[in-house]
Amino acid sequence: MRVGATEEPETTRAGAIAARRPAYEADLEDGVERFFEPRRAVCAWCGSGRLRERLHTTDLLQHKPGAFRLDRCLDCGHIFQNPRLNADGLEFYYRDFYDGLGEKSTAGLFAGRGATYRRRAEALLPYTGLNTNTDIDTHALDSWLDVGTGHGHFCEAAREVFPQTAFDGLDFTDGAELAEKAGRVRRGYRGSFVEVAAAVAGTYDVVSMFHYLEHSVEPAMELEAARLALRPGGYLLIEVPDAASRYSRLLGRRWLPWLQPQHLHFLPVRNLRDRLAALGFTVVAEQHAEAHDRVDLLAATWLVLDGIAPRDEVPWLARRPGRGKRAARAMVVMLGIPVLLAATILDRIIPSALIRRLGLSNAYRVVARRD
């Protein structure tokens, strides 16, 4: 539900929260059990029945009610949410994160990552015959589809690397449409990639999926859709969280890439490589330290502080925190600033060589060519 702008109270955060509260109260009236599918007895990737609990946690970011479990397959290593959220659950837990109450803060966060986006695009340069030291063949990559594009900020930055490439974006939210209006993409598709791929079969020179597959209900179907959308010889560029990272064990449930309950699947790189090969792809690059996002210690520190401090006002809580609780939260955050700064410095000064040697990378990136 979007908040209207016709009445003055609705233009304020307090008014927006008040407007959303009745819907959340109705959603939570019968508890959160209805948001989950039945628990699976076998691995969501390989079908093995040898499962073990990997993580049990709550929603550490929005603090919506509910508990979430990740299971790990002892045969193939795939980690998946079990029981998994159903369609109603996904709508409930995504609501007001990327849109609504969270739209401005989330969009601002993504908009400030231009250097990261350019590095992602540059990962393709060595495998297309393009590089900054020779004349660029501007017709080598005519079209690029970014799946899970959000508001299209990656496409905007990647155009600096591939200035003659036409970038399109796809997302479940209205972000892709907004990206088209803002000129960040040539065309913004809203909806399911599996459905869109059938309509654009063999169209694209590149399909990218940056931190998209982990959100997908059926990642194997998304890979098949990518093959369908690509022309022969086209490239698939994937980046996902790497649950094999040592940080995932050192930081426990406060390792940010767990991102429960949004992240449904964590694919070991071996599993992804095998599935791509079965679909007729050749993996031409696998990167780990290059895909690492230097936020682990900072994010974990913030999640600790946020767990100690009383919650801000949100529409899924019955009432607004009192003045004393709000003051206590401000005090905890203020006292935590030196720790947050120290965590930020540590994140940034660890050399890439050490990240690679110690297996600290929180993500991996794969470049694959459709044969």
Rank of each mutant, 00 (worst) to 15 (best):
G66W: 04
G66D: 10
A67R: 13
F68C: 05
F68S: 10
F68M: 05
F68N: 07
R69E: 13
R69V: 14
R69K: 04
L70E: 09
R72Y: 02
R72C: 04
R72L: 04
R72Q: 15
R72K: 13
L74S: 08
L74D: 15
D75S: 07
C76L: 06
C76F: 12
G77Q: 07
G77F: 08
G77P: 06
H78E: 00
H78A: 11
H78G: 02
H78S: 01
I79S: 14
I79F: 03
F80V: 03
Q81P: 07
Q81Y: 05
N82T: 02
R84A: 15
L85D: 00
L85I: 02
L85E: 10
N86R: 05
N86K: 11
N86V: 10
A87F: 08
A87W: 02
A87K: 10
D88E: 14
G89A: 08
L90E: 13
E91A: 14
F92M: 10
Y93W: 08
Y93D: 10
Y94D: 07
Y94N: 13
Y94A: 09
R95S: 12
R95Y: 08
D96Y: 10
F97K: 08
F97W: 13
Y98E: 05
Y98V: 07
Y98I: 03
Y98S: 07
D99T: 14
D99Q: 06
G100E: 13
L101V: 05
G102E: 11
G102Y: 05
E103P: 02
E103F: 10
E103Y: 06
E103A: 15
K104D: 13
K104P: 01
S105C: 05
T106Y: 14
A107W: 13
G108Q: 11
L109P: 01
L109C: 01
F110P: 03
F110S: 08
F110D: 07
F110L: 15
R113P: 09
R113F: 06
G114L: 06
R118E: 15
R118D: 03
A121S: 06
A121F: 03
E122Y: 01
E122C: 07
E122F: 01
A123Q: 14
A123P: 00
A123V: 03
A123I: 01
L124N: 00
L125Y: 02
P126V: 02
P126R: 09
Y127N: 00
T128E: 11
T128M: 12
T128L: 15
T128P: 07
G129A: 00
G129R: 00
L130N: 08
L130W: 04
N131L: 09
N131S: 15
T132C: 02
T132G: 12
T132Y: 12
N133Y: 13
N133K: 13
N133T: 09
T134S: 08
T134Y: 07
T134E: 14
D135G: 12
D135T: 04
D135M: 03
D137L: 05
D137V: 03
D137I: 04
T138D: 08
T138P: 06
T138K: 01
T138A: 07
H139R: 12
H139W: 03
H139T: 14
A140G: 00
L141M: 09
L141C: 09
S143L: 08
S143D: 09
S143Q: 11
S143V: 06
S143I: 00
W144A: 06
